[in-house]
Computed example of a mutant assay.
Amino acid sequence: MTAPDPRTIAVLAAAGFPVDVLTDEQLQVFGSLSEEELALLLDIKARLDEVEPEVQAHGTVAGGALF
């Protein structure tokens, strides 16, 4: 297993992803995202953040990694 790209992890952290609580396996997945995948994930998170009060209650059920 290769180490996750620290630049990708830094971008995710700056966007508000809770990278400090992710497992090594989760960091590996996030750290191996392509530029296109990272851009899509950041776009989805930004749109979810815009409607946060409406979506926040579903964070536990839907997978807190995105929220």
Rank of each mutant, 00 (worst) to 15 (best):
L66Q: 03
G16E: 03
Q28M: 07
F17A: 03
D5L: 05
E50C: 09
L40I: 11
L66G: 01
T2C: 06
I9F: 05
D43T: 14
L12H: 02
L48A: 14
S32L: 08
L48I: 12
V19W: 01
L22V: 07
V29F: 09
V55S: 06
A15L: 09
Q56P: 01
Q26P: 04
D43I: 02
A14Y: 06
D24I: 04
L33M: 15
L42C: 07
L41D: 06
D5P: 02
A3W: 06
D20L: 10
L12Q: 02
D43E: 14
F67A: 08
D43H: 10
M1K: 13
D5C: 08
E54A: 14
A46F: 08
E25P: 03
M1T: 13
V55G: 00
E50Y: 13
T2F: 07
T23D: 05
G16P: 04
P6Y: 03
R7G: 07
V21M: 10
L33K: 00
S32R: 05
E54C: 07
D5S: 09
D5Q: 03
S32A: 15
Q28G: 13
R47Y: 11
D20P: 04
V21G: 11
A10R: 10
R7T: 15
K45H: 11
E25C: 06
F17G: 01
P18A: 13
M1W: 08
A15W: 00
D20F: 07
G16T: 04
A46N: 12
V55W: 08
F17P: 01
A15T: 04
K45W: 05
T8C: 04
T60H: 11
P18H: 09
L48M: 14
E35T: 15
G31V: 00
L66C: 05
R47G: 11
F17L: 05
D5W: 00
T23K: 06
P53I: 06
Q28I: 03
V51R: 15
E54R: 12
L41Q: 10
Q28T: 14
L42V: 06
V19K: 01
I9D: 00
S32F: 05
V29E: 11
L66I: 15
V61N: 12
T8M: 03
F67T: 10
L40S: 12
G64R: 14
D49H: 08
F67K: 06
S34E: 09
L42I: 07
G16H: 03
A39P: 02
P18R: 15
P18Y: 05
A62S: 13
Q26C: 07
A65P: 04
Q26T: 12
A39K: 14
G31M: 01
E25T: 12
K45G: 04
L33R: 03
A46T: 15
E37Q: 15
L22F: 15
V55L: 11
T2W: 06
G16S: 07
T60P: 08
G31D: 02
I9C: 05
A13G: 10
G16M: 03
S34V: 08
L66D: 02
L42K: 05
P4S: 02
E36F: 08
L27C: 06
V51Y: 09
Q28P: 01
E50P: 04
K45R: 15
